[in-house]
């Protein structure tokens, strides 16, 4: 147990928690926006891959880093538009479309990669975002994108609970008929939510290439998208608690890496440590999601004139 306390006292541990949490925060906020408007977006995993790739390839091509983030955002919104059109006006199954988008986006990234870099054996590196060095060893180790991630949580929370747009979005996720009865467009609101949400997911992916690592690998998203879907549930569809969930998951992840190097790591197999954040997340999910308020119209397509 002493080892754990030692780790918790290290500044580098807390710096790692913030770094690991950042992409999860972006993508979780993206998924949360979609789901609050009533659309489950299972395209998240693939959209994160396309975001990671687009951001990286844009910067590799010579664009500034922030333009890379912008490129990822646009790529995410484009896939969000496709997902949204299939799911909102056409009312197709959100599960099937979401998984299809994940396959399509992942394959598109792979295809474009081979097209642009046919010869290379290992992906070229770029110069990523650098730590800002402000406010001490923990915050100072973070890049501007991590600050942006926390900024996004504040903005999402504000928009959802403090603006007429957020009210309309939440109403869309609960009972779209009530929104339509006020003369608002459910289709427009849901489509917009899916596009913006998908854009945020892609930025979460781009964090991996533009801030965490300096290159692109196909396995780098590695199930983070699915974790984010669980984090939305964990957070009870609220941005604040979802942020907490992302931090908790990142904390377990940072902890298990460090535990492997302690005395405990010599006794137990390392696979057990790798599994630790997932096991603890599932436990937390079970405990937290019992009281969760699921959006009433989640996954239910809205067609005018039907009850």
């Amino acid at each position: 147990m002493m080892e754990i306390f030692d780790i918790l006292l290290q500044a580098s541990f807390w710096a790692a928690v913030l770094r690991i949490a950042s992409p999860l925060i972006f993508a979780t906020m993206g998924e949360l926006i979609c789901e609050r408007a009533g659309v489950l977006n299972l395209g998240i995993e693939g959209i994160m891959v396309i975001g990671a790739f687009t951001g990286w390839i844009a910067v590799y091509a010579g664009l500034p880093l922030w333009w890379g983030v912008g490129a990822a955002l646009l790529a995410g919104m484009a896939f969000g538009l496709l997902h949204g059109v299939l799911v909102v006006p056409f009312g197709l199954s959100q599960h099937v479309v979401g998984l299809g988008i994940t396959l399509l986006a992942t394959a598109t990234a792979s295809f474009a990669y081979r097209l642009i870099l046919p010869e290379v054996t290992s992906p070229p590196k770029i110069e990523p975002f650098q730590p800002l060095g402000l406010f001490g060893p923990i915050l100072g180790a973070q890049t501007a994108l991590t600050y942006a991630a926390f900024g996004v949580v504040a903005v999402v929370a504000y928009v959802l609970y403090r603006t007429p747009l957020g009210l309309a979005l939440r109403a869309c996720g609960d009972n779209p008929a009530a929104v339509a009865a006020q003369g608002l467009s459910v289709t427009g609101l849901r489509l917009g939510a899916v596009m913006v949400g998908s854009g945020l997911m892609a930025v979460g992916g781009a964090f991996l290439t533009l801030s965490a690592f300096s290159s692109f690998f196909f396995e780098m998203v590695n199930g983070r998208g699915w974790i984010c879907i669980a984090l939305v549930v964990f957070g009870g569809w609220g941005p604040g608690k979802a942020l907490l969930g992302a931090m908790l998951f990142a904390g377990f992840d940072a902890l298990q890496v460090r535990l492997q190097q302690t005395g405990i790591g010599e006794i137990l197999p390392y696979q057990l440590f790798l599994a630790l954040p997932y096991i603890l997340s599932i436990l937390a999910l079970i405990l937290m999601s019992r009281r969760a308020q699921v959006p009433g119209a989640l996954m239910i397509p809205f067609r005018k004139g039907e009850r």
Binding site: L167, R170, A171, D174, N175, A177, A178, A180, A181, Q293, P295, G296, R307
Partner: peptide, 9 residues
């Protein structure tokens, strides 16, 4: 007769 309301709000 059938209310158009959001129960969660």
């Amino acid at each position: 007769q059938h209310f158009t309301q959001c129960g969660a709000l």
